[in-house]
Design a protein around this nucleic acid. Structure first.
Lengths: 193, 193
DNA sequence: TGTCCTCCAGAACACTCTGTTCGTTATCGA
DNA sequence: TCGATAACGAACAGAGTGTTCTGGAGGACA
């Protein structure tokens, strides 16, 4: 472990307090004063570790291994990220709800969406799509559909399991994606070979 | 026109000031004090018309005819709302960017998404789908894809025209939706007839 | 064990923003 | 023209932010 035990303790207390408070009151309603009271930590202490609320969230996320470009599990079919990601979300349910939920203010949602868009884009290119404006729009659609499901689950609008969410995602977008790919691949074959 | 000329003037000034400021600084960064300065309106005047920032936005939206369940243009195919809605967004570009953009804080986005989900749900039911958990998830996917495109356009990530956005939307989701519907319809035929 | 150094508590501070109140002035509709 | 109503503007209490400082407690390391 790195550094002073007191430092770890303080950071952990603050992070846990913030997550708990977000789940109770929603991100916007939580104040720094709330957090330091709940964490039982001095005001100056808070500001010596974090710059503000958002910083606490980001550090928390970072230390839990989110925000990293995903391990690139290997080419086992289209949208390999889907099921593991839903599953991971359910494991870290408490944190994920606080971060992405309707009460979470969703400043992180945009970041997650960009990250996911990169993954989807890479997958489609690997599957034979050529870079184009149409591909970019398809990526947006696919990403939007996925994030929609994730958000719906986080907000408790559905009780579906990770497997069911994954199935719904694939059922909704795979036909369109395959049609797009087959057109694209056929076309690029016609040109390149 | 309804009411006092002074009232109309004040409301208009405030609404315009807020939109302008959001586009400059982003929703969160705009304070009520900013708005009343820009609008050149007394503080007490502001609070006699609106309860807060959000209220200004909602009133603005309401008076422009958003937030209404859409005129239900008639059954001319699946996702009839798509193209007109993209087109309408481009016409009201300034307002829509302020309301839905990354800088817009997106408190309205959730509302818009729910509204759209209702429309999509009704369309799919009208097309023969039976109410089910799977249908709900499909609606979430379709809605997510549409909102993703809208947000991408609003945030300037794409320069696509309404027609291109509409085409991308349909290409991405229609195959999956049709597959879902044909399965559903076939099944309900098997049971009901 | 002891020493040194880092971290923490707590209070006080200036600052910004919010939402309300009230007496005065101006502007509207009829 | 005149009564009603809206706007002004200043002042206010309250809440939150982010900084600074001092004294004291706790850990790391030999």
């Amino acid at each position: 472990m790195s550094g002073d035990r007191r430092v770890r303790r303080t950071r952990r207390l603050v992070q846990e307090a913030l997550v708990a408070l977000i789940l109770e009151k929603g991100y916007d309603a939580v104040t720094v004063t709330d957090v330091i009271e709940r964490a039982d930590v001095g005001r100056s202490t808070f500001y010596s570790h974090f710059t503000d609320k958002q910083d606490v969230l980001l550090s928390n996320l970072d230390e839990h291994g989110f925000l990293r470009p995903a391990p690139e599990a290997g080419p086992c079919g289209l949208f390999a990220f889907s099921l593991p990601m839903f599953a991971h979300a359910r494991e870290q349910e408490r944190l994920v709800r606080a971060l992405l939920g309707r009460r979470g203010g969703g400043p992180l949602l945009a970041h997650g969406e960009r990250l996911l868009a990169e993954i989807v884009g890479r997958e489609l290119l690997a599957a034979g799509a050529r870079p184009s404006a149409a591909l970019d729009l398809l990526v947006v659609c696919v990403t939007g559909a996925y994030m929609g499901l994730l958000r719906a689950w986080v907000d408790g609008e559905t009780a579906a399991s990770p497997a069911e969410l994954d199935a719904a995602f694939r059922a909704a977008v795979e036909p369109g994606v395959r049609a797009f790919l087959s057109g694209d691949v056929a076309y690029s074959h016609g040109r390149d070979e």
